[in-house]
Write a protein that binds this DNA or RNA. Structure first.
Length: 110
DNA sequence: CATCTGACGACCG
DNA sequence: GCGGTCGCCAGAT
């Protein structure tokens, strides 16, 4: 399967934003849904500029196991994402395709 | 070819 | 909030 599409999609996720596996699956119409998205990320090539850490589970939960979970969280926090316990603040960081060119709109600077 | 497993999500009790 | 079940697909053994 050409996870290439998935990687490309993930690559365009702006810094400080995240998407869920389900979202990813829906956006790319992956057969099998979120599961397939997960598979794609599992096979995600490291060191290719693929911000895999910006892909989280439904509700902003990190589903992967250690030690990657800690790494992912660390990377996200490093990008300015705020975590609420074991969850990332989806309301603020969930990225929606098509909004990339959207203006910052509200004084969300920084 | 049969079986198991795995970065999931939604539902139900 | 937590744990169990089901659907669903691809790759590995």
């Amino acid at each position: 399967m050409s996870w290439n599409l998935v990687y490309r999609f993930v690559k365009r996720i702006p810094r400080g934003c995240v998407v869920t596996y389900g979202q990813l699956a829906r956006a790319l119409k992956l057969p099998g849904g979120a599961r397939t998205a997960g598979r794609a990320m599992f096979a995600c090539p490291s060191g290719r500029g693929v911000p895999w850490h910006r892909v989280v589970g439904a509700g902003g939960r990190i589903l992967i196991r250690e030690p990657h979970a800690s790494l992912q969280r660390r990377l996200l926090e490093s990008e300015g994402a705020r975590f609420d316990g074991l969850r990332i603040n989806m309301a603020e960081h969930q990225w929606k395709p098509g909004r990339s060119a959207k203006k910052t709109g509200r004084g969300s600077r920084r």
